[in-house]
Amino acid sequence: MNRERETGGFLKKYPGVKIGIIALILLLVVGVSSAFTVEKEVEVNFKGKVYTANGKLLESLEEVLIANELPVSDEYKYSTPLTTLFKDVIDVTIEKKISGKILVDGKTIAYLSGGVTVGDVLEENGVKPDEDDKVEPGLNSPLTEKTGDIKVTRISYVESTGIKDVPMKATIVEKAELPAGTRIVVQVGQNGKANKKEKIRYENGVEVSREVITCEVIMPAVEEIIEVGPSTTIVMPEAVEVSSVTGNVNVEKSATGDGSASINPESGFKGSMVVSATAYTATGNNTASGTVPQSGRTIATWGGIPFGTKVYIPALGGVYTVEDRGGAVGYGIIDIYMDSEAACESWGRQNIEIYFVD
C-alpha cells in the first residue's frame, strides 16, 4: 500500500516522467505496426532484366517474389535464401538451375543443380569419386549451361606376377639373287620367357593398359632372320617386332597374318620359309578343324595360317594340308602327323623349308 502511494506520488510529483513512459509505449506500438505495414523496394535480376519488387519488411523473400509475380520454383536458384525476411534483403539474382546427366557405374542419373562446380552436382546426387577415378569435366570445373553430361570413370589397379612371353624380334634382309616374292627363314625366331610383375589398369572393370614393374628374363628370345627376294611384300604377325629391314621390302602387320610373302607367279608358290618341324601321332581325337588326322596329309600350324591351306614339304616329298593346331605350335613351328611314335621319334625336330601352294 505504501509502495503504491509512493509510486503514485512520484508520478504526481514528476508528471513529465509519466508522459515520457506513455510516449515510449506509443513509439514501440507504432514501430511494431510500421514493421508490418511499411514497404521497401529491392532490385531483382532475372533473365538479364532488372525488376523492382515491393514488399513489407517482415514478409519473407518468397512471399514478396510471389506477390510481385516473379518465379518461385525448384527450377531456379536464388542469391538470397527465400526464407530471408525482406527487411534484410539488399538485392536478388534469380538464375535457372543447370540440368544434365551423370554417367556412372553403368547408370544414368538426371540432375538439376544450383551448384557452382561439377563436384557440387556429384555431391548432391550421392556420387563419390575415388581418388583415382576420372571425372569429365573435372570436379572443380564451373557448372554452366555448356557442362552437359558428367562422366565418371572408375579407375582401379591390380598387380600381377607370373611367367610371361618376351616377344621375339625379326630382321628382314633383301637378297638380289632370290626370285621376287621368295621368303626364306634362315633362323627361326622364338619368344623368350620372363618372370614379370605388372601393374594392370582397369577402367570401369575393363583392362586398358599394363605397366611392367619388374622383369627377370628366364629364357632370352631368339631373333628371327628372314631373307626375301627383291620388291617383296611380307606380312608379319602383330606380335613380332621388326627391328631391321634392308632393301626394297614392304612390311605389313596383321593380327592374324601368317607371315607368308606375296604370290610369286613364276614359282607357283606364295612363298617359302624355313620352319622348325616336329611330329605327332594319334591321340584318339579329331583335328581342331574336325577332320580325322591322316599321315601324309595332316599338319598343325600356328593360328595365322587358315585351315585348308596347302603346304608343299620337299623333305617329305608331298603336299600337306593345315588341319590342326597345337599348344606348343607357335609362330614358325609346324607339327606333322605320322603313323606311329617310332616315326615321330625318328623324325625328331628339324629345320626344313616349306612352300605355300596356290
Score class of each variant (00 low, 15 high):
Phe10Met: 11
Phe10Ala: 08
Tyr14His: 14
Tyr14Leu: 09
Gly20Phe: 14
Ile22Val: 11
Leu28Asn: 12
Val29Gly: 13
Val29Trp: 06
Gly31Ala: 15
Ser33Glu: 11
Lys47Ile: 13
Thr52Cys: 02
Val64Tyr: 01
Val64Asn: 01
Tyr78Val: 06
Ser79Lys: 11
Thr84Gln: 08
Lys107Val: 10
Ile109Val: 13
Gly115Ala: 08
Val116His: 12
Thr117Val: 07
Glu124Leu: 08
Asp133Ala: 08
Val135Pro: 00
Pro137Ala: 04
Glu145His: 14
Thr153Pro: 05
Glu159Ile: 11
Lys164Pro: 04
Lys169Glu: 12
Lys175Phe: 09
Arg183Ile: 01
Gln190Trp: 03
Glu198Asp: 05
Lys199Asn: 12
Glu203Ser: 04
Val206Ala: 05
Val206Pro: 02
Arg210Asn: 03
Val212Asp: 07
Val217Cys: 06
Met219Val: 13
Met219Glu: 15
Ser231Ala: 13
Ala239Gln: 09
Val240Thr: 07
Glu241Asn: 14
Val242Thr: 08
Val245Tyr: 02
Val249Ser: 02
Asn250Met: 14
Ala255Gln: 14
Gly257Leu: 11
Gly257His: 10
Gly259Met: 06
Ala279Thr: 03
Val292Glu: 15
Ser295Glu: 14
Gly296His: 02
Phe307Leu: 08
Leu316Phe: 04
Gly317Met: 11
Tyr320Gln: 00
Ala328Tyr: 12
Gly330Gln: 07
Gly330Asp: 05
Gly332Phe: 02
Tyr337Asn: 02
Ser340Met: 13
Ser340Gly: 14
Asp358Lys: 04
